[in-house]
């Protein structure tokens, strides 16, 4: 089994790192909060002390107030829903497409060999290159964002799925074949469990990229959503509101990253424990 790591040599287990000097387990989270507090304090102080013009960077309290009044408007919640909806729809489509194409292409050596160069060529094409095209075709309708989101995140998923399927142990696959497993059950019992960690990694990468493209489409093309709200706020001179919305988008990004990582950790833990039992 090449996929099972051979951790027999004592050289490979790392000794526990020399850990936490003092302060216990609350030390790091508290320091982190302190760091955030320092940033907030600096943002509050800079405009108040006149270091930065308040028209460019309002004090944090002003941003917070603007955020508060934003949260009270229906428009904000509609925009938030549109952004999250567009993100989720694009991500879901990219996941499905990436999985299907990845498993098929990855499982058939001929397809794999033939498509490798094409994938390598298409992948680095910046998705924003498609902006003019989608603008012509869909204007500022949500489809514009959808195309960009799906295009950008599809490659992330596809490449990971291809890695994952390639990681399947040929011996295991041959064994399954010699017991006359059907094609479908080979995929289900052999390919899928091996590829799963890669799929989850692809999901994490795609989730982040999808959010970037969704916001980009809203901001640049004017697809309804928080990105457009930011653009509108900025061009109408509502500075505090602009910052408030940027903070919201950042928090969404944090939430997306954190939950994708949580999913990844959960699936991977399950995965390694299963493999250890084998």
């Amino acid at each position: 089994m090449t996929t099972v790591s051979t951790v027999t040599e004592p050289t490979l287990d790392r000794p526990a790192r020399t850990r936490a000097p003092a302060g216990g387990r609350w030390r790091e989270p508290l320091l982190g909060l302190l760091g955030l507090a320092i940033v907030v304090a600096v943002v509050e102080a800079l405009p108040r002390l006149g270091v930065v013009n308040g028209r460019f960077l309002p004090p944090f309290s002003t941003m917070a107030r603007a955020l508060g009044s934003e949260l009270a408007t229906a428009n904000f919640w509609t925009a938030l829903g549109q952004t999250l909806g567009g993100w989720a729809a694009g991500l879901a489509l990219a996941m499905i497409a990436g999985l299907v194409v990845g498993v098929i292409v990855g499982s058939v050596p001929f397809l794999r060999a033939v498509t490798a160069s094409t994938v390598e060529f298409l992948r680095p094409i910046p998705s924003v290159a498609l902006i003019p095209l989608v603008v012509l075709m869909y204007g500022s309708r949500p489809q514009s964002a959808l195309v960009l989101v799906v295009y950008a995140s599809f490659w992330q998923v596809l490449v990971q799925v291809l890695y994952g399927v390639a990681d399947v142990d040929p011996v295991v696959r041959d064994t399954a074949r010699s017991y006359r497993f059907s094609r479908w059950s080979i995929v289900r019992t052999v390919v899928w469990p091996t590829a799963l960690p890669y799929v989850v990694t692809g999901f994490r990468l795609a989730a982040a990229v999808a959010l970037i493209l969704e916001i980009t489409a809203e901001l640049i093309i004017g697809v309804p959503g928080l990105g457009r709200s930011i653009g509108v706020a900025q061009s109408s001179g509502a500075v505090a509101q602009t910052y408030a919305l940027v903070i919201v988008v950042g928090l969404i990004g944090v939430a997306v990253n954190a939950s994708a990582r949580a999913v990844e950790r959960r699936v991977l833990r399950w995965h390694t424990s299963v493999r250890r039992d084998l």
Binding site: L34, G35, A208, L219, I220, G227, G250, G253, V254, N257
Partner: peptide
């Protein structure tokens, strides 16, 4: 430890904004 949450935030802001 001091910087980590702050960096997490800035990393998560989609760059186009």
């Amino acid at each position: 430890a001091l910087c980590e949450p702050t960096l997490e935030f800035f990393r998560a802001v989609p760059p186009p904004v």
